[in-house]
């Protein structure tokens, strides 16, 4: 069964059709990149899937369950981890606490008034911290982490509910070019070791072609091409629409 199925999804703002009848699916363990020129509707589509926006029409299924129009905190319950274009972490907490809080929520214990959080979920947290390579930073406040480490922390937090799908909005945005590969290698580790599928948007074509199994190209709210990185690289329509605007933008 697909971890994510999007059927004829539409969303308009005023008179502008940001997403117009988009359908695609993500299989378990698959890495799918969602690309397109600025204004193509990537962010709108993404926000419909993660629950921040309610689609006008269409249907979203996660592992066979209809989740259309559900709020973000409910979407998470269906096994979806998220990272943001600009990292969102808990600045007043340590690296370990950031993950412990998420683990408590995953365990359904967010409203618990009993034992102190610092003494709970410690071992599980350390496993995740180790996995993303932040072991030396365990007790540091998130506010003091460099940006690259924050991205890693966010990925660890997103993995706390053992998701079947990771939604990553520009996972390497704001990172130095040489750090991007490392970040995406880490994502590949999650896919390989934890069997999670990844749907991500990305501007860096090296990242897209190097780390996606399949690429979906969006333009003006429509899917104009879909296929393996090699197929997309050779697709004439994509070159005309996507790279064309890219060229214009760089002129």
């Amino acid at each position: 069964m697909n971890v994510l199925t999007v059927e004829k999804l539409s969303k308009a703002f005023g008179g502008v059709q940001a997403v117009g009848g988009v359908s695609f699916a993500v299989a378990p363990g698959e890495r799918v990149a969602l690309i397109g020129p600025n204004g193509a509707g990537k962010t709108t589509l993404f926000n419909c899937i993660n629950g921040q926006l309610r689609p006008d029409d269409g249907r979203i299924e996660m592992s066979g369950r209809d989740v259309t129009g559900q709020a973000p905190h409910r979407i998470w319950r269906h096994g979806v981890g998220r990272t943001f274009q600009i990292t969102a972490t808990f600045a007043s907490m340590t690296v370990a606490e950031n993950i412990q809080v998420a683990l408590a929520s995953a365990d359904g214990a967010a409203k618990g008034l009993g034992r102190r959080l610092s003494a709970r979920y410690r071992a599980e947290a350390e496993v995740l911290i180790e996995l993303v390579g932040l072991a030396a930073r365990t007790e540091d406040p998130a506010a003091e982490l460099p940006y690259g480490d924050l991205k890693r922390l966010e990925l660890a937090v997103a993995m706390t509910n053992e998701p079947s799908l990771l939604l990553m909005d520009e996972p390497t945005a704001g990172m130095a070019a040489d750090a991007r590969g490392g970040m995406m290698d880490l994502v590949d580790v999650m896919v390989a070791e934890r069997g999670v599928a990844v749907l991500f948007t990305e501007h860096d074509m090296d990242v897209v072609f190097g780390h996606a199994d399949r690429v979906i190209v969006l333009d003006r709210g429509q899917i104009i091409a879909e296929g393996s990185p090699d197929e997309i690289r050779g697709d004439a329509t994509v070159r005309a629409v996507y790279l064309g605007t890219f060229d214009e933008a760089t002129v």
Binding site: A88, G114, E154
Partner: peptide
């Protein structure tokens, strides 16, 4: 210091992240 209190402080630090880890803010 309890999970409830930490989660509350989480909603203060970042409501966006809190919702993304399943907290009904």
């Amino acid at each position: 210091f309890s999970p409830f209190g930490y989660t509350l402080r989480a909603t203060r630090d970042s409501a966006l992240r809190s919702a993304a880890i399943g907290v009904d803010v």
